[in-house]
Write a protein that binds this DNA or RNA. Structure first.
Lengths: 132, 132
DNA sequence: GCTCATTGTTTACAGGCGTAGTCGATTACG
DNA sequence: CGTAATCGACTACGCCTGTAAACAATGAGC
């Protein structure tokens, strides 16, 4: 048995921070080759090409990326929407730190003065919309 | 050289998820002994006493907990405020996922319908206060 | 067609994390 | 005073992560 061997990896697999940096690039523009991705992050993070390759491979295993052959190389594209990732990640934080309620998070940010005037204005607008 | 040996561990050390569960208990009530802590989390997380002891030790190393001798055992107390932890952790998320701006996070939660009516009311109240 | 550069794959390795057992010291109880 | 229970320290170990080298296949250019 064991249909597809070593292929354990639910789509729910967690994406690590380094992997996330790679996803960022691909969410901005895709599909890209490993080299393209490296061109966009290697400098900033002090990575080498092999590192990016490893991360790409792991993301493919985790089904966070899909690939298309292009000659001898692969082109990588996100297999999950950025908003999905951001959503579950936000939710996770709110659940873990604020008992699942968003208001305390907001209060926290407010108290930490992490809210700019623009933020406040935008949130106000959103609120108005929500109530309609 | 090497003043205090193995004692590398800036207070900035990151607290892992399991460690956080222990901190939670101590933020709620402190000081507590290892057994007290275990009594409060072991069941819920399926841990054994040794596990809790390890986590406590690591948290002490990370200077997230302080200890007081009490006979042959230690009593543990938080060495950092919960609000500090929650603050940096929230900030980290906002920085990483929303470019440091809070409004998009709020929008995300709104769109994900993660906002209850109570949340909205409370946030509205907070907004009003902020503007005064 | 042959060689060279490029690509993905495999392997590596140290450090952190989750989970826990062992052990020597110490305290408490009889 | 001696023995048993308990405590913290040390050790362990597999998995994930960050980072990367080695290698084998494959496609491109001459």
């Amino acid at each position: 048995m064991a249909a597809t061997p070593q292929a354990n990896a639910q789509p729910g697999e967690r994406i690590s921070e380094a992997e996330y940096a790679v996803m960022e690039v691909l969410w901005e523009e895709a599909p890209l080759s490993a080299q393209d991705v490296c061109a966009k992050v290697c400098a900033a993070r002090g990575w080498s090409l092999p590192t990016v390759k490893t991360l790409l491979a792991r993301l493919v295993t985790k089904q966070a990326l899909s690939t298309t052959r292009d000659g001898k190389r692969f082109l990588y594209s996100p297999a999950m929407a950025r908003s999905d990732y951001v959503g579950t990640e936000s939710r996770r934080l709110v659940d873990r730190l604020f008992g699942g309620r968003a208001a305390p998070l907001f209060a926290q940010l407010a108290q930490a003065e992490a809210l700019t005037d623009t933020d406040i204005a935008e949130i106000e607008a959103l609120l108005k919309e929500l109530k309609s």
